[in-house]
Design a protein around this nucleic acid. Structure first.
Length: 654
DNA sequence: TATTAGACTTGATACAATCGAA
DNA sequence: TTCGATTGTATCAAGTCTAATA
C-alpha cells in the first residue's frame, strides 16, 4: 500500500502552462473539421474509417483458424514466426461488422467455468506457531488464516491497529473453541517461523532449475488453454480473469476500516455461471454444484460471485482484446468526440449558470467547471465507515479547499487538497475566474469544515443535467475528452519534424505525461529510483569526461594538421571530429533519458494510455512520423487497440 | 423519488519475465 | 552466465453509472 506523500505533486502554479483545457484554449475547436459522419452511433457504425472498411467488408465464415487461440504468438522467440504472423493477419476484425441493435451482448456463449484457488496445503509439522512463548498446533482452518497473516509480516499493514484488530476478530471465527479460549491476544502470537518458511519457499521457487520452471510454465499454459478462452458468437475469445480470487486478508487502500478482514474462500456453490442455453455448460468440480446457471445475454460476464468484505459482486469477464470490450472502448471515444463538437456551447452555458438565481444551478455549474478544467472525477456518495474517506468533485467538502483572494501575484486562487480514488492525494493550487471564486465563498458561508461544499448537488443530478446537454454525456466523458484532446494538442506542439525517432518518442512521452498530470495519475517513486538516477548520472559524467577528452584530441589533431597540412593529419581530424559528434549524441541521449526519468518519477503513464487516450490519435501520430507502433504500444496494448491500429490513418483527428 | 444492487471501467501495485551490463 | 534494473502482466480494489426496487 502506498502512503499519501506529503510532497505536493501539483504545487507549482506554472503547471497551468497551457495544456489544461481551459475555455480560452478551446475556442478554436468549432471551426475544426466537420466530421458529422464519423460520429459513433450506438446502433450502427458509421465512421469514415468504417465506410472504408465496409467496402472491403470481410465476410466472416466460421473456420477452425478463428477459434484457435492466439497460441503461437505467446511463444516467445517464435518457434514458428511465419505461422504467428499468418494468424496475426487472419485475426478477426470485429470492427468491420455490424453491431447488434437489440441490447443483447451475445447470441452464443460457451466456456469451461472458472479455475478455483488450490485447496489449503497444511504446513509441515516442523513449522511451529507459538503463543505466549509456547508452541501450539493449530487446527487446519485456524492455521490457514494464520498463514495469511504470517506472509504479510514484513508489510506495513500488519503494524496498523485496524488491520490487526480486524484480522484477529476474523481469525478467531475460524478457531476451534479450545483455540479461541487460549488465543486471546494477537501480540502474544509468534508467526515468525511460518514467515521464514514462506520466505524460504519463495526463495526455493526462484532457485528452481530451468526444467522445473519450464514444467510449471507448461502447466500454466495448459490451464490457460483449457479455461482461458470462451466461445462467443463463433469466435474464440480470451477471458480476462478466469481464476477465482484466492482467500486472504483484505488489503483496502488508504485508511480503510475493513483492512485485515478475512476474504473467504470461494467455492463452486458461490458461483453463478452465465452461458447460453444451447452451449456445453461448464462442469462444477467433482462433488460440487454451482449456485446457479443462467442464460442472460444482456450482460457480458461469464461467472460471478458475491465477495464477503463489502458484499459486492465480482465478475469474470473477457480480455480487453475481445470484441465486447473493444466495441465499448471505441464507443467511449466516439462519445468524447461528440463532446468535442458541443463543448463550447456547454462551457458558455455553465459560465452563464454561475450567475443563476438558483443556488443548485450555480453549484452544478461550478462543479462542472472543475470537472472540465481540472478533470476531476464525478464523486459519488459513499457509505460512511464502509470504505476509506475519499472524495471526488460532487462530494468535496469545505475542508478540502482553501480560498486565497490574492497570493503569489495571482488573484482568486483555489487550493485543493483531498484524497481521491485509491486515497491518492490531489493537491493543486489554481487561479479561477472571479465569479467562480465568489460563488465558492458563497457556498462555504456558515458551513463547518466537514460539510459538503456542493450541498445541493450529487452525481445523479449532475449527470441528469449532462444527459440533457448531450446524449450519452456523463461526468467521466470530460476526463476522456480532455485527456485525448490534450494528447492531440501536445503531440502537435511538441513533435519536431527534423528530430530523430528517440527524440520524437520523448515528445510522445511528454505529451502522455501532460495527460497523466492532468488526470493526477501518480505512482510511488520506484524503490530503486534514487539509485538508478545516480547510475545514470555517473554514466553522464563519464560521457562528459569522454567528450572533453575527445575534444582535446580533436583540437590537437587540428593543430597538427595546421602545421603539417598533409592528408594523413586531415583524415585524423575527420576521425576525431566524428568521434566528438558521436559522443555528443550519446551524451544527449543519456541526458534525455535522465530528464524523461526524472520527470516521470511520480507519474504513472499507463492508466491514461490504457483508459483515456483515444488510441487512434497515437496510431495516426505514428503513421504520420513513420514511427513503428511497437515503440508506443507493447503487445498487449496492440491487441487491445487492434481496432484503432487497423482503422486510423495518419490524418485522423480526434 | 431515493436507495440500492448490479455491471462495468479505472486504478495502483505486487510479482514475473525479460533485458542488458558486468 | 549472473544479477540488478526495467518492463510487462495479473490482481483485485475502488471508482462511475444505470437499472431495478421500494
Amino acid at each position: 500500500m502506498r502512503e499519501t506523500s506529503p510532497a505536493a505533486i501539483k504545487s507549482e502554479p506554472e503547471e497551468d502552462n497551457g495544456f489544461y483545457p481551459s475555455p480560452q484554449h478551446n475556442k478554436t475547436s468549432k471551426r475544426e473539421h466537420d466530421d458529422e459522419d464519423s460520429e459513433y452511433k450506438p446502433k450502427k457504425v458509421k465512421t469514415e474509417q468504417d465506410k472504408k472498411a465496409k467496402k472491403r467488408k470481410y465476410e466472416y465464415e466460421e473456420d477452425e483458424e478463428d477459434i484457435k487461440p492466439k497460441k503461437k504468438t505467446k511463444d516467445k522467440k517464435g518457434t514458428d514466426g511465419k505461422k504467428g504472423k499468418k494468424e496475426e493477419e487472419e485475426k478477426w476484425k470485429w470492427w468491420e461488422e455490424e453491431r447488434s441493435t437489440d441490447g443483447s451482448k451475445w447470441r452464443f456463449l460457451e466456456h469451461k467455468g472458472p479455475v478455483f484457488a488450490p485447496p489449503y496445503d497444511p504446513l509441515p509439522d516442523k513449522i511451529k506457531f507459538y503463543y505466549d512463548g509456547k508452541q501450539m498446533k493449530l487446527s487446519a482452518p485456524a492455521e490457514e488464516v494464520a498463514t495469511f497473516f504470517s506472509k504479510m509480516l514484513d508489510h506495513e499493514y500488519t503494524t496498523k491497529d485496524i488491520f490487526r484488530k480486524n484480522f484477529f476478530k476474523d481469525w478467531r471465527k475460524e478457531m476451534t473453541s479450545e483455540e479461541k479460549s487460549k488465543i486471546t491476544d494477537l501480540n502474544k502470537c509468534n508467526f515468525s517461523d511460518m514467515n521464514e518458511y514462506f520466505k524460504a519457499q519463495s526463495e526455493a521457487r526462484k532457485q528452481m532449475s530451468k526444467e522445473e520452471k519450464q514444467k510449471i510454465k507448461e502447466e500454466n499454459e495448459r490451464i490457460l488453454q483449457e479455461y482461458g478462452f470462451c466461445i462467443m458468437d463463433n469466435h474464440k475469445e480470451r477471458i480476462g480473469n478466469f481464476r477465482i480470487e484466492p482467500p486472504g486478508l483484505f488489503r483496502g487502500r488508504g485508511d480503510h476500516p475493513k483492512m485485515g478482514m478475512l476474504k473467504r474462500r470461494i467455492r463452486p456453490e458461490d458461483i453463478i455461471i452465465n452461458c447460453s442455453k444451447d452451449s456445453k455448460h461448464p462442469k462444477p468440480p467433482q462433488g460440487t454444484k454451482w449456485k446457479e446457471v443462467r442464460h442472460d445475454n444482456k450482460v457480458t460476464w461469464l461467472a460471478s460471485w458475491t465477495e464477503n468484505i463489502q458484499g459486492s459482486i465480482k465478475y469474470i469477464m473477457l480480455n480487453p482484446s475481445s470484441r465486447i470490450k473493444g466495441e465499448k472502448d471505441w464507443q467511449k471515444y466516439e462519445t468524447a468526440r461528440r463532446l468535442k463538437k458541443c463543448v463550447d456551447r456547454i462551457r458558455t452555458q455553465y459560465r452563464e449558470d454561475w450567475k443563476s438565481k438558483e443556488m443548485r444551478i450555480r453549484q452544478r455549474a461550478v462543479a462542472l467547471y472543475f470537472i472540465d478544467k481540472l478533470a476531476l472525477r464525478a464523486g459519488n456518495e459513499k457509505e460512511e465507515g464502509e470504505t476509506a474517506d475519499t472524495v471526488g468533485c460532487c462530494s468535496l467538502r469545505v475542508e478540502h479547499i482553501k480560498l486565497y483572494p490574492k497570493i503569489d501575484d495571482q488573484e482568486y486562487v483555489v487550493e485543493f487538497d483531498f484524497l481521491g480514488k485509491d486515497s491518492i492525494r490531489y493537491y493543486n493550487k489554481i487561479p479561477v475566474e472571479k465569479r467562480v471564486f465568489k460563488n465558492l465563498q458563497l457556498f462555504m458561508e456558515n458551513k463547518q469544515p466537514e460539510d459538503d461544499l456542493f450541498d445541493r448537488l450529487n452525481t445523479s443530478i449532475l449527470n441528469k443535467h449532462l444527459q440533457e446537454l448531450m446524449d450519452g454525456l456523463t461526468a467521466k466523458v470530460f476526463r476522456t475528452y480532455n485527456a485525448s484532446i490534450t494528447l492531440q494538442q501536445q503531440l502537435k506542439q511538441l513533435t519536431c519534424s527534423d528530430e530523430n525517432i528517440p527524440a520524437k518518442i520523448l515528445s510522445y512521452n511528454r505529451a502522455n505525461r501532460a495527460v497523466a498530470i492532468l488526470c493526477n495519475h501518480q505512482r510511488a517513486p520506484p524503490k530503486t529510483f534514487e539509485k538508478s538516477m545516480q547510475n545514470l548520472q555517473t554514466k553522464i559524467d563519464e560521457k562528459q569526461n569522454q567528450l572533453s577528452a575527445a575534444r582535446k584530441q580533436l583540437k590537437a589533431a587540428k593543430a597538427d594538421h595546421k602545421a603539417s597540412h598533409d592528408d594523413k593529419s586531415k583524415k585524423t581530424v575527420e576521425v576525431k571530429r566524428k568521434a566528438v559528434q558521436r559522443i555528443e549524441e550519446q551524451l544527449m541521449k543519456l541526458q534525455v533519458q535522465a530528464t524523461d526519468r526524472e520527470e516521470n518519477k511520480q507519474i504513472a503513464l499507463g492508466t491514461s494510455k490504457l483508459n483515456y487516450l483515444d488510441p487512434r490519435i497515437s496510431v495516426a501520430w505514428c503513421k504520420k512520423w513513420g514511427i513503428p507502433v511497437e515503440k508506443i504500444y507493447n503487445k498487449t496494448q496492440r491487441e487491445k487497440f487492434a481496432w484503432a491500429i487497423d482503422m486510423a490513418e495518419k490524418d485522423y483527428e480526434f
